[in-house]
Design a protein around this nucleic acid. Structure first.
Length: 287
DNA sequence: ATACCGACCTGTCAGC
DNA sequence: TGCTGACAGGTCGGTA
């Protein structure tokens, strides 16, 4: 469920509801899989932390924290007391929603659903919860800056965009999904971008003409912006941080529409598998 | 260096 | 009413 527009929607919801709140207590389920950091590290960093800002990097939710003041900075190397005043330390809490992850801000009265892996009690009285049935999501804490590769598709310039594909022999669909090139595009928005650009998903990336790339660049940004405005696509599980679904699934032209009529030419939409991912396109409109 | 493919998990739905 | 198999928004590591 979580591609760039869905993650951006969650981030905006969190930004409006939990910035400046303080995490008072953390509960983690016993399950080990969804964690990239150990449960102890996560509990240690989150407990007492103040949320200073929330933003998005690709499909990662980045929650910036200020840690409570510590009299001594624990077991550091033998550095002499570097500061006499108590400086606050910063840290980052990273959440990746995987396929079925949800990050919710709810009242503690809400029943705790199956597959809840983290509950952070907030000073405001609400709870920040991470729920993920398939456990493909990831939680991690970093004491230093979180780094990732790839360029934001809404920030990239056209020249850099064309450079990503110039020598790439993989299908353009696979290249769009490659997070090391562009970060945040997933299966839905790869298919929808290609549909609007009139390009078949199996075309080798390096064979796209400048005109193709120009259409793809503009289609990609347009689809992502429209999807953000619609609160993302809710195909089966996705909901935002308030538990509300998005509406962009009603504007899909090809994704999930196998055998249905193309909205432009009425030709039935085809579904094929490319790189193990189902891919949808109109065989007449997309060349 | 690239590019494909199965594995990781649970849930749902179609077909028998 | 089961049961089985296919499939699902993502990423990783191994292999060709």
């Amino acid at each position: 469920m979580p591609e760039l527009p869905e993650v951006e929607t969650v981030v905006r919801g969190l930004r409006a509801s939990v910035v400046a709140d303080v995490i008072e207590e953390v509960w983690l389920s016993g399950r080990k899989q969804p964690l990239k950091s150990t449960p102890r590290e996560i509990a240690e960093v989150l407990t007492g932390a103040r949320i200073t800002s929330v933003h998005r990097m690709g499909k990662h939710i980045v929650i910036d924290l200020t840690l409570p003041e510590q009299p001594s900075l624990s077991k550091s190397k033998k550095s002499k007391s570097k500061s006499t005043k108590h400086t606050s330390e910063n840290a980052t809490f990273i959440v990746h929603l995987g396929m079925t992850g949800r990050l919710l801000v709810v009242s503690p009265d809400e029943p705790v659903p199956k597959h809840t892996h983290l509950i952070a009690k907030l000073k405001s009285g609400r709870e920040l919860r991470f729920v993920d049935p398939r456990m493909f999501g990831k939680l991690a804490v970093y004491r230093d800056a979180f780094e990732t590769v790839g360029t934001e598709p809404l920030d990239i310039g056209f020249d850099q965009f064309t450079g990503l594909f110039r020598k790439r022999k993989s299908p353009i669909k696979s290249a769009l999904l490659n997070q090391k090139l562009l970060r945040g595009i997933g299966n839905i928005y790869a298919d929808e971008s290609l549909a609007r650009a009139g390009i078949r998903p199996r075309r080798r990336a390096a064979t796209l003409t400048r005109l193709d790339l120009d259409r793809l660049y503009r289609s990609m940004q347009q689809v992502l912006n429209e999807a953000i405005a619609a609160g993302g696509s809710s195909v089966s599980d996705y909901v935002d941080s308030a538990g509300e679904p998005g509406f962009f699934q009603f504007q899909h032209r090809v994704y999930g529409r196998e055998h249905e009529a193309c909205l432009t030419c009425k030709t039935p939409i085809k579904r094929v598998v490319i790189g193990g991912r189902s891919s949808h396109y109109c065989p007449k409109c997309q060349k």
